[in-house]
Amino acid sequence: MKNEQGKPKKYGMVVDLDKCTGCGACMVACMSENNVPFKADESNKRDSITWMRVYKITNGKPFPDTENCFLPRPCMHCEGQHGHSPCVSVCPATATDYSTETGIVSQIYTRCFGCRYCMGACPYHARHFNWWDPVWPDGMEKSLSPNVSVRMRGIVEKCSFCFHRYQAAMDKAMMEGRKELEESEYQTSCTQACPSGAITFGDLNNPKHAVYELKKNPNAFRLLERLGTNPKVYYVSSREWVRRAGDNYIKGEWENKQNAKK
């Protein structure tokens, strides 16, 4: 479906890293919205399922010049070249797909058979494998939402930009005879929860949505843009070292780039 401007929708995010405080509300909002399982010990971050993960990055300088910054990382919903995001094109069973209608990279848990090729392909570590059977202690399964299906052991899952909220919003719109959504009708759980208002979500192709202008901020950057993943999550930071940390540069390259800008 196309938006009023005639362009296909392209949902994306702009995260203001100056505002992000690393509080973790987005992570929990995501887990609680999307029935993300938990284990008794989640301290091994490499088998801990967090669709949204907040990285703590540092400028690497010694005391007292140390600086930290927090960087929330959902799935980037890479467009790659024409929707061939790194993970989508490698999935052998079409369990993950790129929708030209919304620009969202889907993950169909019941189709996935757990080969993990997509995880190897994703440089953002946005994909998580269910190494363990999801178990909810007795009674706790009452808090599960019926809008998102519960995943089973042995498959890969990841952030869906709370796609079920899009489905619900579209249901309501269709009920009211509309085919368009207002910006506020479809927001991800993390965006909604962020107490700092650091996350903005919307249609990157729609000038009426806040993200349309925000992504043009001269301090905006995307993670690992040089790889050609064409991600749909933008970050804004006023700190140069943070922007530099968004990608890899060989010695002197970043400095040259900065000089060229001036």
Binding site: C23, A25, S32, K142, S143, P195
Partner: peptide
Amino acid sequence: VKIEGQKGHPVSNGGICLLGLSGLQLLYG
């Protein structure tokens, strides 16, 4: 099934913290 921030509340106006978000785990835990 989910705790969200309450829009228009004078103190928090739609925002919520991670502990508030995980309150259901205290209810059903």
